[in-house]
Design a binder for these strands. Structure first.
Lengths: 154, 154
DNA sequence: CTACATGCAAAATCTTTGCACCCCG
DNA sequence: CGGGGTGCAAAGATTTTGCATGTAG
């Protein structure tokens, strides 16, 4: 587990707080630590569960608010799949990508295609549309679940 | 406004109901008529507002349930943007497409790119992932709103 | 007559807010 | 000390469910 000192993300957060007249707080630091130490695409509940074990004093509300700050500070990205839950992933030094989601086991794969991004820009251009962001999600079955399905229903 | 008789969608619904042991109902027919006569990407509330004016007896719940049936019957597609509302669009004889959403005025443009779909299939293939569906949404400013923005902040 | 359909109200779910209290700077 | 931060409970918002009643087949 990386310590506070080894992670530039803490400095980024401090800088963001300072620039916006916000204050440092023990809770936000704790939440950031756990956010960074949790891999993948976590929901507020995932994070709350983990944090609450060690820090029963930190409530869900604070986690919601902290994550909003992290997103604004460019440390986190929020993504929404089809289950109504907002998930968060690391953004700092994590290049843009899109997602493939297994409807069977919930695994989330990341993919990038500069080709697709280029075509997307072209299309937007044709419409005179200026892109601000996008999301491209593919739902289906991952390799493992596809194999299982074949075994069960050949 | 097309009448019931001129629209094959009613026959598709009947067929679906029959095949699944469901019953015909006046309400579902009314909802389908208004769904078909409403263009674009409507929320349950949009539809309810319109229908309730003429048929105060039809409640939101019934509209929710009817739309679920329409989706199963392949007459409608549900889409979710970023505002937490589920929208519905016509699917029957309406080819697959994706969406560009103006964050300023809410306009929704549709686009298709066989190139992108092909690349998408290729990528999924590389991962051994079998696609079931996808959504590709581009957020930004439409031509009109881009022009306005330029005028205001040149 | 049986099973599906409907409509109201209540429940469920995720997220945001109000408010009193706390703590950083 | 003043203004942001926190945490609990309550409020919001959208969609689903329970239940008594209606009605298609």
């Amino acid at each position: 587990m990386a310590t506070k000192e080894t992670r530039e993300e803490f400095r980024v957060l401090e800088a963001y707080l300072a620039k916006n007249g916000l204050k440092h707080s023990k809770q936000r630091e704790t939440i950031l630590k756990h956010f960074l130490d949790t891999s993948g695409h976590m929901t507020v509940d995932d994070l709350h569960r983990v944090i609450h074990r060690k820090h029963p004093g930190i409530g869900r509300t604070t986690i919601y608010r902290a994550l909003k700050v992290f997103v604004d500070a460019q440390l986190a990205d929020s993504i929404e799949l089809r289950d109504g839950l907002t998930r968060f992933e690391h953004k700092f030094r994590h290049a843009h990508h899109d997602h493939m989601i297994c409807v069977e086991c919930g695994t989330i794969l990341e993919f990038v295609s500069h080709e697709i991004e280029r075509l997307q820009d072209e299309i937007a251009d044709d419409y005179g549309f200026s892109i601000e962001s996008h999301r491209h999600q593919i739902f289906g079955r991952c390799q493992k679940c596809t194999r299982h399905a074949k075994k069960k229903n050949p």
